[in-house]
Amino acid sequence: MKVAVLALQGAFIEHEQVLQRLGVETVEIRQLKDWQQPIDALILPGGESTVQMRLLKELGLYEPIREAILIGMPVLGTCAGMILLSEGRLGTMDIEVRRNAYGRQLGSFHTVDTVKGIGTDVPMTFIRAPYIERVLSDKVEVLSTVDGHIVAARQGNQLATAFHPELDDGTRLHELFLGMVVGRSDKE
């Protein structure tokens, strides 16, 4: 299994480190030629969604990545990555997202809560985090809410979180994602 991590900006190294601890091969996507190799899944990391979107378009990665997700490539979007998956950006996931929903850097926080499919006591680190303001179809399954706001959801092979699982010690969310990748491989 080879998981690509968008490495244009943001917390991509931390995702790579978690995947390496789980014994998964990773490849950084920095330009179109990086994308043109066999890849089983993709992680869109946290960072600056506006910068990441601009670079995706400038580097010719927007359409190929969008198309791969639409035809079923498993993708994990965390924080800015969740924003990228939403309506008005890549538009592959039927969600509307409120950017910086908890305020700026000073609004960052850590909590522990439940995520469907993982269990209880899941550590959640929110850094200038968004949340899902509105689910646009019944294809979207809400996996977690914190203080009444949707912070994790799944639609088919897309998994999105408002928090940064790569910044905590646990690997359960990445394991859930890798299970989606394996599940897709089993169907092919």
Rank of each mutant, 00 (worst) to 15 (best):
V3G: 07
V5S: 01
Q9I: 05
Q20H: 15
R21P: 08
R21N: 15
L22F: 10
V24S: 08
E25P: 07
V27D: 05
I29F: 05
R30T: 11
R30W: 12
K33L: 13
W35H: 08
Q37D: 10
P38F: 05
D40K: 01
D40V: 04
I43N: 04
P45A: 03
G46A: 05
G47Q: 06
G47E: 06
S49H: 11
S49F: 08
T50R: 02
Q52H: 04
K57A: 14
K57E: 12
L59K: 14
L59A: 10
G60P: 05
G60M: 08
Y62E: 10
Y62W: 15
A68W: 08
I69G: 01
I69V: 15
I71D: 15
P74G: 03
P74W: 00
L76T: 03
G77M: 01
C79K: 01
I83V: 09
L84C: 05
S86N: 02
E87T: 03
R89K: 15
L90G: 02
I95D: 00
R98W: 02
N100W: 04
N100G: 07
Y102V: 09
Q105E: 12
G107D: 13
F109Q: 09
H110A: 11
H110S: 14
T111M: 05
V112Q: 11
T114K: 10
T114Y: 15
K116E: 14
I118D: 03
I118E: 03
T120E: 13
T120S: 12
D121C: 07
V122A: 03
P123W: 02
I127R: 00
I127K: 02
L143K: 00
S144Y: 05
G148R: 07
I150Y: 04
V151W: 03
A153H: 00
A153S: 01
Q155C: 06
G156D: 11
G156R: 02
N157A: 11
L159S: 01
L159D: 00
F163D: 00
F163E: 00
F163Y: 09
P165C: 06
P165Q: 03
D168K: 04
D169G: 12
G170P: 01
T171L: 13
L176W: 04
L176F: 15
L178Q: 04
G179Q: 12
M180R: 05
S185R: 13
